[in-house]
């Protein structure tokens, strides 16, 4: 998971009595703060400040002689900082924000393009294909339920796991097209995705099974005289097909684990699946047999 520490939040105090910034300046400043990664609350009343509940907040405003809102108490655990921005240019305000952030030692906002899968649990059937497919440990299981656990492990612009999901249940909100971007899932999408998902048609078996089989065949074929370059060509051919059919960026293909790592991972996934099946079998076995009452007879 990404670091849970929230960054400095900005309150742009625009209450009438405190000489608000004009609409044009308010827009310019808000836009620039957002683009630097700061969340901005445009505050129009003192009561809003009193209700701030969490985190560190920097309140920017034209407070004048009244000072930085001394009458405003906050007993909700939030830490408030005030800066008078009267007469300051936008660039100077941005400098003041950075200065306060430095003082608070809060993390620099931004710096990571948030690209990761989001599961639509209305569609997900917990089949775990995504868990088995993803080579970068983005997915995990908690209480037998598939979850996205390591968002930052996901490879930017790679939507491959959403392609293998048979239920079109995996979204990438920043993807270019639907339904992966969160657009409504239509019947034709399900049919189209299912065609792409058909790994059997694509590789003659499941992905890892296919790679294992290819590796075994290669070993048998070249057991007396190994031909590494031919095996490499075979792997490249397979990867090119993956790139084309799953829209996988070059960068991801370049960082794929070795065939040995993939095989090891497939074995681990298989063992996990077997353990899960055994557990669910045990649960079924320990349930008492249904009686006539249970069946309403």
């Amino acid at each position: 998971m990404i670091t849970p520490k929230p960054p400095l939040q900005i309150g742009l105090y625009q209450n009438g009595g405190h000489r608000p910034l004009g609409g044009g300046r308010e827009y310019d400043l808000t836009r620039k703060l957002l683009d630097k990664g700061y969340a901005v609350s445009v505050i129009r009343s003192d009561s809003q400040i009193g209700k701030i509940r969490e985190g560190a907040w920097l309140l920017l405003g034209c407070f004048g002689k009244e000072g930085p809102l001394p009458s405003v108490g906050n007993g909700n655990g939030a830490k408030l900082y005030f800066r008078d921005i009267d007469g300051l240019e936008t660039s100077q305000i941005l400098e003041a924000v950075e200065q306060v952030r430095g003082e608070t030692e809060l993390p620099d906002p931004g710096g990571w393009k948030p690209w990761f899968p989001v599961i639509d649990y209305n569609r997900c059937t917990n089949c775990m294909q995504c868990l088995s497919f993803c080579l970068f440990d983005v997915y995990g299981v908690h209480e037998d339920k598939i979850q996205v656990q390591n968002e930052s492990n996901c490879k930017t612009d790679c939507p491959a796991c959403s392609r293998v999901c048979p239920e079109v249940a995996i979204l990438f909100p920043k993807y270019k097209s639907g339904p992966i971007n969160g657009d409504v899932v239509r019947q034709e999408d399900i049919q189209r995705e299912a065609m792409k998902v058909d790994i059997s048609a694509l590789l003659g078996g499941d992905l890892y099974g296919s790679l294992r089989q290819r590796q075994t065949e290669a070993r048998q074929r070249f057991s007396t005289e190994r031909d590494e370059s031919r095996a490499l060509l075979e792997r490249k051919k397979c990867l090119r097909k993956l790139k084309k059919d799953f829209d996988i960026p070059d960068e991801v293909l370049m960082s794929l684990p070795s065939a040995g790592d993939i095989q090891e991972r497939a074995e681990r996934a298989k063992a996990k699946l077997a353990a899960r099946q055994e557990r669910s079998q045990t649960v079924r076995d320990t349930r008492p047999a249904p009686t006539e009452d249970d069946w309403g007879i």
């Binding site: 990664g37 969340a39 931004g110």
Partner: peptide, 10 residues
């Protein structure tokens, strides 16, 4: 009044 956030995904 409104709240503006840089990125809901993040």
């Amino acid at each position: 009044p409104f709240e503006a956030v840089p990125d809901l995904c993040e």
